[in-house]
Nucleic acid binder design. Sequence first.
DNA 1: CCGCGGGCCTGCGCGC
DNA 2: TGCGCGCAGGCCCGCG
Length: 286
Amino acid sequence: MPELPEVETVRRGLAPLMEGHVIATADIRRPDLRWPLPPDMAQRLTGQRVLGLRRRSKYILADLSGGETVLIHLGMSGRMLIAPGAGDGQILGDYVHAHAAPQTHDHIVLTMDTGARVTFNDPRRFGMWDMFPTAGTHPLLEGIGPEPFGNAFSDVWLAKRLAGRRTPIKAALLDQANVAGLGNIYVCEVLFRAGIHPARLAGDLDGGQVARLVPLIRDVLAEAIEAGGSSLRDYRQADGELGYFQHAFRVYGREGAPCATPGCTGTISRIVQSGRSSFFCAACQR
DNA sequence: CCGCGGGCCTGCGCGC
DNA sequence: TGCGCGCAGGCCCGCG
């Protein structure tokens, strides 16, 4: 799924259709995704005004007028398909679909009072939807580390989190407790820019390397958000166009390609760490 | 406590 | 053409 930039892109795409509008109907088309859905979710959604859409890590949070918040995770293959309603005019976001009968893997369909329709489609069903009191918290959100663009994410924080860790830096940056929102693609891209081999042990990085990671993480994520989120085959914009940032990947999915570093004659390698592919240049990542 | 591997699902592209 | 295999952007959980 989607990593932080893609989730943020979806949030921005949903906001004009949902914020300030009432959920007229909620069609829950199966009892579970990765986890069971609240059995009374349809009733709890129906008639609620969406006060705002937030993002925390890779979760979208929809605050409802009745005091509950909807927690949404897109998993690996989740998509939000959008059909605009009356008065929505030109929709800013992507993923605009015409109204149509539910398709295979359309699991949740929200119809707004404007007639706009938001359909959650997730073939692999690793996605999650749940509800919790807005004033409270949710177990899935506890333990998530600082947002990468927030002040709490700093070289001091990261150094403290990585100190003494005998796990590869690749795994440490994928750990949402250390920094929220990075996934396999963007960790590969960050480590490439940092010149750090993905198998290096997190606790072995020196202070300068850790400090440089912080702005590089922000750069990579900001560039991807700017590009509208990358979209791979599970994450296609509705008109079939692919996102831009994927064309800016320097290592991810580029095994065998020449390294993009000026003057470097290396080629991109792929290794498997904890069952996940890591792409890197062995010549300039140490 | 920490690190690793399995499991959850479906779909797609590849090699035979 | 058909089939089996490996692979896919995430995350929780149990094991050692």
